[in-house]
């Protein structure tokens, strides 16, 4: 997937963090959330997990709830039983792709741009 590079001076924002989650009652989820987000810089991103997946035709959980090992995405493994932040905390790994905010942004935006569907700009997801 093409990396969207160089968005300097642009006012597009923390684009959609749509990897909605929490392993348990997903039908109740209405906002993207992770317990690692303690102080919010932007409004939470509304997200209806099942509606989204139905509309987007997503069958496999690991489309979003992926597990990577040795630089490869594991085809048969998934991670819906974990919070994203359990893996995605860049401070520990030193790899910026593991940064939690970046993980959310890339997960949503790259897919949306690729599919030409769904929100991509700051204001489209972080709705006031």
């Amino acid at each position: 997937m093409r990396k969207t590079l160089g968005l300097l001076f642009l006012f597009s924002f923390l684009a959609a963090s749509l990897v909605g989650f929490s392993a348990y009652c997903q039908e109740d989820i209405s906002f993207v959330g992770d317990s690692a987000f303690t102080e919010r810089m932007r409004p939470s991103v509304p997200f209806l997990h099942d509606d989204h997946n139905e509309m987007a035709n997503i069958e496999d959980c690991n489309e979003c709830h992926h597990v990577w090992e040795d630089g490869k995405k594991l085809e048969w493994d998934s991670s819906e039983d974990k919070e994203c932040s359990e893996c995605h905390l860049s401070q520990e790994s030193g790899d910026s792709d593991m940064d939690l905010i970046k993980a959310y942004h890339n997960m949503c935006k790259e897919c949306h741009i690729g599919q030409k569907a769904g929100p991509v700009q700051c204001s489209e997801c972080h709705i006031k």
Partner: peptide, 9 residues
């Protein structure tokens, strides 16, 4: 907002 985008790029 700009800094986040730059950081991610």
């Amino acid at each position: 907002a700009h800094i986040i985008l730059i950081k991610e790029s």
